[in-house]
Design a protein around this nucleic acid. Sequence first.
DNA 1: TATTTGACCAAATTACAAATCCGGTCAACA
DNA 2: TGTTGACCGGATTTGTAATTTGGTCAAATA
Lengths: 199, 199
Amino acid sequence: MPSVVQTKEMREAILDATDRLLSIYGYKKMTIDDLAREVGIGKGSVYLHFSSKEEIVLSHIDRIVERVKFELNRIAESDCDCSECLRQMLSARITIRFESVQHYTQNLNDLLADLRPKLLARRRQYFLEEAEIFARVIEKGQKSGALRGDDAFQSAETLLLATNSLLPYSLTASELGERAEIEEKANRLAKILIRGLEK
Amino acid sequence: MPSVVQTKEMREAILDATDRLLSIYGYKKMTIDDLAREVGIGKGSVYLHFSSKEEIVLSHIDRIVERVKFELNRIAESDCDCSECLRQMLSARITIRFESVQHYTQNLNDLLADLRPKLLARRRQYFLEEAEIFARVIEKGQKSGALRGDDAFQSAETLLLATNSLLPYSLTASELGERAEIEEKANRLAKILIRGLEK
DNA sequence: TATTTGACCAAATTACAAATCCGGTCAACA
DNA sequence: TGTTGACCGGATTTGTAATTTGGTCAAATA
């Protein structure tokens, strides 16, 4: 059996390679042979760390969402005021997601087409997890008197839903527009949304 | 030459048939032979009204957008107060768009895949035209003192952008969720957005 | 004559089979 | 003990023949 440290490092290396290959070839055309070669290990070794191709790619996507959640939690627990927290969280979410897909050659929807059913289920899960972090901040804001007393989780869902339109899965990186432009739109939207939540 | 009335009615009949066939087969698999048969005219007659298959389908989509714009203008010119106008306009937009795609068997993005470049250009145009109607209402609200003095057109763009996420082109009608659920989300979002624009 | 039509054409698409490729396994190797 | 790549069957691609389709226009129709 591989040692724990080696296993963890190797998992990361495989997911890094997955990101590179996925961005060029997409799920279907990315082969396990390619992946093993890119990592520099034998094909059989890939299956020491993951049980299937599907699990590899889903884990890669999980990792991105974990990064987003980590950053959201970091901001949520910082001591700036509630509105500023929400502003930073919305901004960070767009930034990380943009960085995660900007090197993809086609749109995410097509690159991951064959995983669609599994992904839809996961996206709902991701959405809930992120919404919970936002809801915590909103609740804090309500207790401090800064925000209105609407249902916190529903408000969080609404924030995410509204800002999701900025990075549609059906657009190519090149069709998305400049990063600066997207971030400007995101800020404008965030400003209006957050003001709408304030007392 | 066909008489004006007949031409207009026949155009509509062709676009109606286009909607039916498009919702089942999509752009590529919908044939002009099928279309002519569905309308009950000869194939050659289709080309008396449209110059190409592409023009037919784009006209069909134009017609939907025209319906949306007509309704938006109607509400915009009614005499309810600005916030209420915006609320109704956002709601109408979702409702009409939902009705226009709910009978489609696959997602719009796939059904219209082969038209993507042309459609992207048009969507930008549609977006601008709708945004202008919203901007007029916002400007009126600013003059009456109900709304903040931010750039009206930018605010309009932001409203549309945010609510676009409710009906993603990449989801099947069956994946979209219940109509009531979408309208509820739309209302919640509209409420926050409009409050964010108010003084 | 004024309209409408469907047979016709080239180009695109499909159908079908043979050849190739790929995810996943596991006996052998280091 | 930990790693590997040859191997398997099912899926995919490739090459090509047969079919279909967008668009036209001479002929039919009214």
